[in-house]
Amino acid sequence: MSSPTGADPRPEIHRTADGDWVVAGRRCRACAEPVAYAWPRCPACGAEVEVAHFGPRGTVWSSTVVRIAVPGHTPPYALAYVDLDDGPRVLAHVAGDEPAPIGGAAWLIGASDDGDLQVEVAR
């Protein structure tokens, strides 16, 4: 219920020289856990982490369409949890007002004007 001020908690994304969008996150040096965020330690085991890039491709784990008013967002909007290849599970917005096909391919296409991670999905 806090208002969106202060540091942006969403994953930081970069565009590579090849033009691909990737999440700039961390990977655990001990257990290889991928994390979409610049956290100081691995959330799974507490070991040290190093910078790692994930994406752009992944698979839709699940998806829904939010059809109620949520502060700062205009319904309806589609969301998907995407498991980036060899990477973390990230929450992303999907264009349109239909859920993304679960199990289907997804790829990062950048951030929305509001700073939300966006994916395109195979339909």
């Binding site: 969106p4 969403r10 965020y37 939010v66 109620i68 700062g72 929450l91 700073g115 939300d116």
Partner: peptide, 19 residues
């Protein structure tokens, strides 16, 4: 909380369970 990525991205609690 909007200090979390899920909250900031508009994943209301019903949507979390909807997943």
């Amino acid at each position: 909380e909007t200090t979390d990525p899920e909250g900031r991205a508009g994943l209301a609690m019903p949507a979390m369970y909807a997943m």
